[in-house]
Protein backbone atom coordinates (compact mmCIF):
# COMPACT_ATOMS: atom_id res chain seq x y z
CA UNK A 1 0.00 0.00 0.00
CA UNK A 2 1.60 3.28 -1.02
CA UNK A 3 0.33 6.53 0.36
CA UNK A 4 1.51 10.10 0.47
CA UNK A 5 2.56 9.30 3.97
CA UNK A 6 4.96 6.60 3.03
CA UNK A 7 6.12 7.37 -0.47
CA UNK A 8 9.06 9.41 -1.65
CA UNK A 9 9.17 13.17 -1.54
CA UNK A 10 5.70 13.81 -0.20
CA UNK A 11 6.62 12.39 3.17
CA UNK A 12 4.31 13.68 5.89
CA UNK A 13 5.07 13.47 9.57
CA UNK A 14 3.96 10.04 10.84
CA UNK A 15 1.75 10.46 13.87
CA UNK A 16 0.99 6.92 14.96
CA UNK A 17 0.55 6.45 18.70
CA UNK A 18 2.41 3.11 18.75
CA UNK A 19 2.68 1.12 21.99
CA UNK A 20 1.45 4.14 23.97
CA UNK A 21 -1.73 3.97 21.91
CA UNK A 22 -2.61 0.48 23.01
CA UNK A 23 -1.51 0.72 26.62
CA UNK A 24 -3.09 4.05 27.48
CA UNK A 25 -6.89 3.84 27.53
CA UNK A 26 -7.34 7.61 27.88
CA UNK A 27 -10.92 8.81 28.07
CA UNK A 28 -12.40 5.59 26.74
CA UNK A 29 -14.72 3.22 28.54
CA UNK A 30 -14.16 -0.04 30.37
CA UNK A 31 -13.88 -2.38 27.33
CA UNK A 32 -10.90 -0.33 26.18
CA UNK A 33 -9.18 -0.92 29.53
CA UNK A 34 -10.06 -4.61 29.43
CA UNK A 35 -8.37 -4.74 26.01
CA UNK A 36 -5.11 -3.59 27.62
CA UNK A 37 -5.59 -5.81 30.67
CA UNK A 38 -6.27 -8.83 28.47
CA UNK A 39 -3.02 -8.32 26.59
CA UNK A 40 -0.99 -7.66 29.74
CA UNK A 41 -2.39 -10.73 31.53
CA UNK A 42 -1.76 -12.76 28.37
CA UNK A 43 1.87 -11.63 28.22
CA UNK A 44 2.21 -12.29 31.98
CA UNK A 45 0.88 -15.84 31.62
CA UNK A 46 3.21 -16.45 28.68
CA UNK A 47 6.16 -15.30 30.78
CA UNK A 48 5.02 -17.53 33.65
CA UNK A 49 4.71 -20.60 31.44
CA UNK A 50 8.19 -19.99 30.00
CA UNK A 51 9.71 -19.65 33.47
CA UNK A 52 7.75 -22.68 34.65
CA UNK A 53 9.17 -24.82 31.85
CA UNK A 54 12.72 -23.59 32.45
CA UNK A 55 12.41 -24.27 36.18
CA UNK A 56 11.05 -27.73 35.60
CA UNK A 57 14.24 -28.37 33.63
CA UNK A 58 16.12 -28.11 36.95
CA UNK A 59 14.69 -31.49 37.90
CA UNK A 60 17.16 -32.99 35.46
CA UNK A 61 19.91 -31.74 37.80
CA UNK A 62 18.74 -34.11 40.53
CA UNK A 63 16.78 -33.82 43.77
CA UNK A 64 19.22 -31.46 45.44
CA UNK A 65 19.16 -28.70 42.83
CA UNK A 66 15.37 -28.97 42.72
CA UNK A 67 15.05 -28.57 46.54
CA UNK A 68 17.44 -25.60 46.47
CA UNK A 69 15.39 -23.95 43.78
CA UNK A 70 12.13 -24.56 45.62
CA UNK A 71 13.48 -23.08 48.84
CA UNK A 72 14.56 -20.00 46.83
CA UNK A 73 10.97 -19.60 45.57
CA UNK A 74 9.24 -20.09 48.89
CA UNK A 75 9.41 -16.46 50.17
CA UNK A 76 6.27 -14.30 50.60
CA UNK A 77 7.18 -12.22 47.51
CA UNK A 78 7.01 -15.29 45.29
CA UNK A 79 3.83 -16.45 47.02
CA UNK A 80 2.27 -13.10 46.07
CA UNK A 81 3.65 -13.55 42.53
CA UNK A 82 1.89 -16.90 42.37
CA UNK A 83 -1.32 -15.22 43.42
CA UNK A 84 -0.89 -12.64 40.65
CA UNK A 85 -0.48 -15.46 38.12
CA UNK A 86 -3.69 -17.03 39.39
CA UNK A 87 -5.53 -13.68 39.24
CA UNK A 88 -4.19 -13.10 35.69
CA UNK A 89 -5.45 -16.54 34.73
CA UNK A 90 -8.94 -15.81 36.10
CA UNK A 91 -9.13 -12.44 34.28
CA UNK A 92 -7.75 -13.82 31.02
CA UNK A 93 -9.99 -16.89 31.04
CA UNK A 94 -13.26 -15.13 31.84
CA UNK A 95 -12.64 -12.09 29.67
CA UNK A 96 -11.43 -14.42 26.92
CA UNK A 97 -14.72 -16.31 27.15
CA UNK A 98 -16.63 -13.04 26.77
CA UNK A 99 -14.43 -12.05 23.82
CA UNK A 100 -14.93 -15.37 22.03
CA UNK A 101 -18.70 -15.02 22.36
CA UNK A 102 -18.72 -11.40 21.26
CA UNK A 103 -16.24 -11.95 18.42
CA UNK A 104 -18.80 -14.35 17.04
CA UNK A 105 -21.45 -11.68 17.31
CA UNK A 106 -23.25 -13.27 20.28
CA UNK A 107 -24.66 -11.06 23.06
CA UNK A 108 -24.12 -7.92 20.98
CA UNK A 109 -27.61 -7.55 19.55
CA UNK A 110 -28.59 -6.34 16.11
CA UNK A 111 -27.72 -3.12 14.31
CA UNK A 112 -30.02 -0.28 15.37
CA UNK A 113 -30.78 2.96 13.55
CA UNK A 114 -28.51 5.58 15.10
CA UNK A 115 -30.78 7.90 17.08
CA UNK A 116 -29.07 10.63 19.08
CA UNK A 117 -27.69 10.27 21.77
CA UNK A 118 -25.98 7.25 20.22
CA UNK A 119 -25.54 4.14 22.35
CA UNK A 120 -23.27 1.49 20.84
CA UNK A 121 -23.88 -2.23 21.22
CA UNK A 122 -21.18 -2.73 23.87
CA UNK A 123 -22.80 -0.11 26.06
CA UNK A 124 -26.24 -1.58 25.56
CA UNK A 125 -24.86 -4.91 26.77
CA UNK A 126 -22.84 -3.44 29.64
CA UNK A 127 -24.68 -5.54 32.32
CA UNK A 128 -23.02 -8.68 30.87
CA UNK A 129 -19.67 -7.04 31.51
CA UNK A 130 -20.57 -6.11 35.09
CA UNK A 131 -21.64 -9.70 35.79
CA UNK A 132 -18.34 -10.97 34.36
CA UNK A 133 -16.32 -8.48 36.45
CA UNK A 134 -18.28 -9.50 39.54
CA UNK A 135 -17.44 -13.18 38.95
CA UNK A 136 -13.77 -12.26 38.37
CA UNK A 137 -13.68 -10.28 41.64
CA UNK A 138 -15.41 -13.07 43.59
CA UNK A 139 -12.99 -15.71 42.27
CA UNK A 140 -9.96 -13.48 42.88
CA UNK A 141 -11.04 -12.90 46.50
CA UNK A 142 -11.73 -16.62 47.00
CA UNK A 143 -8.27 -17.53 45.67
CA UNK A 144 -6.68 -14.81 47.83
CA UNK A 145 -8.30 -16.25 50.95
CA UNK A 146 -7.08 -19.73 49.94
CA UNK A 147 -3.53 -18.38 49.50
CA UNK A 148 -3.50 -16.55 52.83
CA UNK A 149 -4.99 -19.35 54.95
Amino acid sequence: MTTNATSGENRHLPNRLGIKGWIWGGNYTIERYLYTLHRITGLGLLLYITLHLVMNGFRLGGAESWTDLMSFFSGPGFKFGEYLVMAAFIIHALNGGRLILQHLGYTLGKPKPPVYPYVDSLRRRRPILWIMLFIIAALAIYVLVEFVT
Binding site: Y28, E31, R32, L34, Y35, L99, Q102, D120, L122
Partner: peptide, 9 residues
Protein backbone atom coordinates in the same frame (compact mmCIF):
# COMPACT_ATOMS: atom_id res chain seq x y z
CA UNK B 1 -9.66 -6.44 16.13
CA UNK B 2 -9.76 -7.41 19.80
CA UNK B 3 -12.94 -5.57 20.59
CA UNK B 4 -11.74 -2.58 22.56
CA UNK B 5 -14.86 -0.73 21.43
CA UNK B 6 -12.96 2.56 21.23
CA UNK B 7 -13.97 2.97 17.57
CA UNK B 8 -17.69 2.85 18.35
CA UNK B 9 -17.25 5.22 21.24
Amino acid sequence: CHLAGACSE
